[in-house]
């Protein structure tokens, strides 16, 4: 059966191989790769990987493999039918990001089913407010809930949440 995965690859060596690994490791057969360089966003190039799988079950295993590997996947289709539709959201947090337990912030997002695919922290001095930028991958139907959760965390921890504009 024909499967397709839309992945977002950082423009760096080795990222394509990393994205392909879960497919080959679980018996998928890659037959085409297209990069959409003109749609580059947040430094990542959307790339469509088309591959052959035996069935949905095999595709599910590959899907989990992507997650484990930290590959940012926003869409997976099987024979043209959507299995997964996710979007990636960039968010900057400003405030005492570390002192308010950044790990707990990430864990709470994770519990909700939002996958933090990158977390970049910038601190000038420990006692001063710091900033972090994260990319969060979320199933589209959970997007609104994610925004609410972010607002809740921000309120509790007195952080400012600066999220990516909708529909960008």
């Amino acid at each position: 059966m024909k499967a397709e995965a839309l992945v977002h690859l950082k423009d760096a060596p080795g990222t394509l191989l990393e994205a392909l690994a879960p497919i080959s490791a679980h018996g998928g057969n890659v037959y085409s790769i297209s990069h959409f360089r003109e749609r580059i966003k947040g430094g990542a190039v959307p790339t469509l990987i088309a591959f052959e799988v035996k069935d949905l079950e095999q595709l599910e295993v590959i899907k989990k493999g992507f997650l484990k590997q930290g590959v940012e996947v926003t869409e997976i289709t099987l024979e043209g039918r959507k299995i997964v539709k996710r979007k990636t959201l960039a968010v900057v947090l400003v405030g005492h990001v570390m002192a308010t337990d950044a790990k707990n912030t990430i864990d709470r997002l994770d519990e909700y089913g939002a996958f933090v695919s990158s977390f970049d922290l910038s601190i000038a001095k420990t006692e001063l407010p710091s900033a972090a930028l994260m990319h969060i991958v979320i199933e589209e139907n959970k997007y609104e809930g994610l925004l609410k959760l972010l607002d809740k965390i921000a309120e509790e921890k007195k952080l400012v949440v600066i999220r990516e504009v909708e529909g960008s």
Binding site: G43, V94, D120, S122, A131, L133, I162
Partner: peptide
């Protein structure tokens, strides 16, 4: 710091 991180990621 927040502005710089955003800028680095294309925002």
């Amino acid at each position: 710091e927040g502005i710089a991180l955003a800028k680095k990621s294309g925002f």
